[in-house]
Structures are given as C-alpha cells and as structure tokens.
Design a binder for these strands. Sequence first.
DNA 1: TGCTTACGTTAGCATTAGCTTACAGATTCG
DNA 2: CGAATCTGTAAGCTAATGCTAACGTAAGCA
Lengths: 107, 107
Amino acid sequence: MDAAARALAEPTRRKILRLVRDTEQTVSDIAGNFSVSRPAISQHLRVLQDAELVTARSEGTRRFYRARPEGMDELRAWMDEFWSDSLRNLKVEVEREQWNSRKRDKK
Amino acid sequence: MDAAARALAEPTRRKILRLVRDTEQTVSDIAGNFSVSRPAISQHLRVLQDAELVTARSEGTRRFYRARPEGMDELRAWMDEFWSDSLRNLKVEVEREQWNSRKRDKK
DNA sequence: TGCTTACGTTAGCATTAGCTTACAGATTCG
DNA sequence: CGAATCTGTAAGCTAATGCTAACGTAAGCA
C-alpha cells in the first residue's frame, strides 16, 4: 500500500495510468504523450508495476502495459475506513451533544 | 492532490492521522507513540498540514492537531472515477463480446 | 525575574527519486 | 547474417525527503 500511494503521488504516473486504463499501450506510445525521455517513462512504469498498478504483456519486441485498478484497493479501503469511522464518530459526537443539551434544558 | 497523495505515502504520517482522527492531540502526545524524535513528528505534521489533512489549534504553549478527512476528497474522487470508469468500460467490453458471440452463433 | 515546558525551525547528513545519456539484449526484417 | 526497432538497465547528476542535534521563541510557573 505504501508503494501504491507513493506511485500515485506522481502526476506523470497518474497520467500514465489514465492512458493505459482502457487500452493497453506500448512504452513508445505512452512516451509520446510526455516531454520526458522514454527511459524515464520506463522507470515510471517500473514503479507502477512494483506497486501492482499495471500489468505488462510482451509481444515481439514491444511491451504492452495495461492499468490494474485493483491495485488501488488497499489504499481505497484505508481511506474508506478512515472516512466512515470519522463520520461514525462525528455522529456519536453530535448525539452526545444533543443529549447534553437535553440535560441542560431539563435544569 | 499531489500533496495529499505524497503525505499519505508515508506510513508514519498515516499512523499520525489515525491518532488524531477522533481526538485532537498535542505534538508531544503524538511523538510518544513513535521512536523518532519530536522535531521529526513536527515536520510530518507540517507536511500533513500543507496537504490540508490536519488542522491545528494553539492553546498556551501547546498545539493541538486534529485530522481533516475532507483533505482526502480530491484523491478519493480521482480513484473513484478511475475505478468506476474502468468498470463501465469493462461492461462495454463484455457486452461487445456477448454481441460478437451472438453473431457467431447465428452463422 | 529566571526556569521550565512545548513547540517550531535551521543546518547538516544520508538516502531516495526523477531525469538524461549511453549502452545492452531481444526481435524483426532486408 | 546484418541493420533497424523496441525496450530495459546502469551510471551519474540534481533535487527532494526524512532524520537528528542544536537553537530560538513564546507561554506558564517558581
């Protein structure tokens, strides 16, 4: 999950993910969309692959990359839990406040 | 959003977030849970604050930090869209496949 | 007024990240 | 076989990151 978060923290890598989300693409294809060198893209793809956010398939000399959305599951789950638990606690907080205010009204 | 993703990419910072999710805590309180120095925690808090993932409140010499879950909204939205669009395209893919297979059956 | 507590900030260091250039391996094509 | 294509990898540079130790500052307390 550290790897996924770190991979997503890079704008270039997020753009790459969008590029290979629906259609698998070769390294050269991908690199064509950026101003950085092709090796730089290769290194980004390496990071994405280590984070299991993309998969690769070789065909002849070319290499096709495709996004792997499930790679985000862990991070998404972490955020979802953080979010929902926080909401739940907010709810408890509000209810306690309402309870206190009822007590105050009684006095 | 870059800032949020980068901030979340650090295990220490995610732990800090959990610590101040429900109850605001001082820097020393937080630092007590880690083996790194207090200034290191201060720096992490700085990163979290720049990413708008925590808010701070001063009281005397102490400083209370509290999580700010909305700071994750942008990143969550990005992932949600990525996820759902990918699912939608998968659906289209499957439907096309079914269509082709029906065509094949007709032959 | 001094001493203490609770912080932030700075300087300095080791590590990591992202990039380019240069090179190496595999495949295809003449 | 030899040349061209597609790609990964290594070396080397700069910038950023995470840490510690030292210092600065503001508030509370004797």
